[in-house]
């Protein structure tokens, strides 16, 4: 059993510090290319060094894919502006509450000046929890009612 409640851990322990960040004036085509190259699902956009928006796979699906969006369109016009953010010191519990209540899958983590310092995705959060409960996740019988009938299970 972990000695520290995983839900009280600070987000510094699990945030992605190799997140993607670009200026909000960057063109859609360049952002798309960067996302594809990095196999990433979201991009943090900044203005004057502070987080101004997030551009996610959902934004592409909802606003660009069928519209034939021109590659030079500034991503500022397509991103989700003023995203929810948390400080790096916030806890896993706070991140779960915020992501659930705001329906976001990508949470930029910021410093006091609003500069991006990390990214928490729902996938990363789930991986963290899967690792935080290794015994429960890995050692479960494939069927909940399964009982070994012989002592060594042979």
């Amino acid at each position: 059993m972990p000695t520290v409640d995983p839900f009280s851990r600070p987000l510094t322990d699990l945030a992605d510090d190799a997140f993607l960040v670009m200026e909000e004036s960057t063109g859609y085509g360049a952002v798309l290319e960067a996302l594809r190259t990095a196999r990433a699902g979201s991009m943090i956009l900044t203005k004057d060094g502070a987080v101004a928006g997030v551009f996610t796979e959902r934004d592409i699906l909802n606003k660009c894919l069928l519209e034939g969006t021109r590659p030079e369109t500034p991503v500022r016009e397509l991103m989700s502006p003023r995203p929810s953010t948390l400080p790096l010191t916030a806890t896993v519990r706070e991140a779960i509450a915020l992501m659930d209540s705001k329906h976001v899958r990508n949470l930029p983590l910021v410093d006091g000046a609003g500069a991006p310092k990390g990214l928490l995705t729902v996938g990363r959060l789930i991986r963290f929890l899967a690792y935080a409960f290794p015994a429960e996740v890995v050692n479960l019988p494939p069927r909940p009612g399964q009982v070994a009938e012989e002592a060594d299970g042979a």
Binding site: A90, R93, L98, S101, F133
Partner: peptide, 22 residues
């Protein structure tokens, strides 16, 4: 600064989350 303020404590998940996972 215009950032979202953290939800007040009453809106944080309550109870034993580990238990909910298990």
């Amino acid at each position: 600064c215009g950032h979202d303020l953290p939800d007040p404590a009453r809106r944080l998940p309550k109870g034993d989350l580990a238990e909910r996972v298990r």
